[in-house]
Nucleic acid binder design. Sequence first.
DNA 1: TATGAATGAGGTTTCATTCAT
DNA 2: TATGAATGAAACCTCATTCAT
Lengths: 218, 218, 218, 218
Amino acid sequence: MSPISPDACLFRRRRKEARPAELLEAALTLFVEKGFAATRSEEVAKAAGVSKGTLYLYFPSKEELLKAVIQHFVGTEIEAGIQEAAAADGPVAEVMEQLLVAWWMRIYEGPASGVFKLVITEVRNFPEIGEFWVERVVAPGQAIVAGLIRRGIARGEFAVDDVDCAVHSILMPLILECVHKHSFMACGIGKELEIHPETFMHAHLRLIFAGLKAPASA
Amino acid sequence: MSPISPDACLFRRRRKEARPAELLEAALTLFVEKGFAATRSEEVAKAAGVSKGTLYLYFPSKEELLKAVIQHFVGTEIEAGIQEAAAADGPVAEVMEQLLVAWWMRIYEGPASGVFKLVITEVRNFPEIGEFWVERVVAPGQAIVAGLIRRGIARGEFAVDDVDCAVHSILMPLILECVHKHSFMACGIGKELEIHPETFMHAHLRLIFAGLKAPASA
Amino acid sequence: MSPISPDACLFRRRRKEARPAELLEAALTLFVEKGFAATRSEEVAKAAGVSKGTLYLYFPSKEELLKAVIQHFVGTEIEAGIQEAAAADGPVAEVMEQLLVAWWMRIYEGPASGVFKLVITEVRNFPEIGEFWVERVVAPGQAIVAGLIRRGIARGEFAVDDVDCAVHSILMPLILECVHKHSFMACGIGKELEIHPETFMHAHLRLIFAGLKAPASA
Amino acid sequence: MSPISPDACLFRRRRKEARPAELLEAALTLFVEKGFAATRSEEVAKAAGVSKGTLYLYFPSKEELLKAVIQHFVGTEIEAGIQEAAAADGPVAEVMEQLLVAWWMRIYEGPASGVFKLVITEVRNFPEIGEFWVERVVAPGQAIVAGLIRRGIARGEFAVDDVDCAVHSILMPLILECVHKHSFMACGIGKELEIHPETFMHAHLRLIFAGLKAPASA
DNA sequence: TATGAATGAGGTTTCATTCAT
DNA sequence: TATGAATGAAACCTCATTCAT
């Protein structure tokens, strides 16, 4: 009816292109906070600044939105880690400590940390999520660390019985730290028992490396 | 007042006394599997072999049922650990490995393992759960392990910079193992990446102890 | 099993015989207070000091209980009025004021006053109640008053155009006073606007009689 | 923001604006007929031609709907009476009969008559209703009539002992007539005892006025 | 595209009634 | 008789999804 100015058009187009990302961000936040089932799709829309109906222009259902969220906030950080690990050089323990802490702190600080909680929470209701997650996150993540450990063994730095177990020992606390950030820590519970994440990551890796360097236990 | 002999209703009484526990067990299983919000109260009732209405004879609301579940399946195992840890004697690393693995395997195999997932999943919606959990589980659990580490230091077995961090390094993988049991592992995803829990616990503790025994890293 | 003492038997028999009346009283109170639909049958049982099941030994359903309540608390007072009115002698206005106020105050103070509210509230859901009520209460009640008015006309005391209307003018405020006792007055609302019932009944009847005595309005 | 012309959704907007009133009307009818507790919210919705869910778009709960009903159908008629009473002139008895009958017949014929029954029925369950009712209906209504009576006294037409009692004598039958319309009369019970409302109102007022004009009874 | 009114399946909870004891 | 545990129909309310504008 009224001729729309080209300016307004530009604004709208820009908004339009940003929409899916805004919706995904809002969805991630809310799904992580309240869980998938307890989050109303209207809440997601409101948090993204659009109306209920608009959400359904971009995602055909709440469940598809969940899957899209997982896919959207995954991988990039993990993959970044792979690149850096491959490029790094020098004493493996030093490299790993620098690399892993930096890499993981980025994950911890960013939205990906929430996805860890979300996936753990929802896999049993939506197993396809799990397949995707293992393939794109778990497997590559473990591979990075396993690769570094093996490099350490090759360089004579480490003496390791079971590389897979060591990978778990290294990574699981980091993952749980992410999960905790979005459960206990997010509601200010057990403050006196909390640990500064970065401090812990350093201490944790040093402890592990000390163990890895020791001659294999009898 | 009633002329009916007191043991005439023994059967009913016994059923009545068993009901809450049956309902709590069913609720735990389902809440852990599907999440609190996604579990219908009728499902819980059916799983316990009673009707919808009966559930509400024993718990005034679904939310109260959740709280009761947490309280019911908590603490006993943790406390058992405290007793054993206090009673144990000899080289701390050996004692800990035996004790911790046995203790934790009981937790891992029993219903408590599910509660770890449940609490992580639901704290943000029901923060009171978290208070209870920290007070009754997290704090005592960390205290057990911290106490053992300190004993190790006192005996000259361990050299530790930061006891709290070491406690986290030890416990977090064990906790996440419990959580994983009820998320990824329960739906048969990522089998190729899985680790046998008991094997891992042994390997994990040996790695940590090796680290703890090493002279403090420069 | 245990031989019951004859004494206990007597006590039980007495209680047993009192049960229906106790239940009816409790039911009346609660139905008047909360309405039939909003009263739970267990509440009635509790108020009568018995258990839910016992109620159903005496009344086959909640609806039958309602009917029984209406029937139980009706009629006797009304009929008493008929006897007295027939027996009375002397100037009708004086007789009526004495008789009506006394009669009605007994109704107002007793349980029957609640039945007025109950019937008004529930007729449309249970029309049979209405039939019974009109036949046993409304018709005889109006007949008493109409009879007295006609006696007054016959004695030359009153000059009345429309006896039925006069009966309504006399009785309706008295009925509404009963209803109010169990609605507004029972929850202490509008205290400043309330009137002392007996004072009002006297004033009301005198006003009416003054009107009835006046020569028919032009 | 939206490119849709403002009057494109005129139809929807008009519907939306009409909805609350439609729902309130349906609710009044059903609440008066069956009582609040015995009316299902879906019935209200159906009677207003919408679905269950739509009702809850406009009223947050059944109880709030009840309160809204009372507030919606109150006051306007009462207030209209105040204006007319103030404006009227001439012999008070004549003025009052004309005014009161006309005023009250409008109330009797309109939806407000049902509210009298509804309020009486539900005050004890929702006392806040009563406060509102007394303040907005009872007090002003009594004030109108009391004012007229006092004007009659000032003009030498009436001789009254107790104005408040006279107000009650005048109004209570009118109120109960409204209540009866929605209880006994609505289910066709006691037809032979019924009175034509308008006829009765005239007769009632004349009887009262005759009493008010008489010299105060000794 | 964007909106938000409307829907109705489905979830939680209540309660009249039954029945084993 | 008396009890109160158990039932399940039915009530209230929510929310994912649709669709007219």
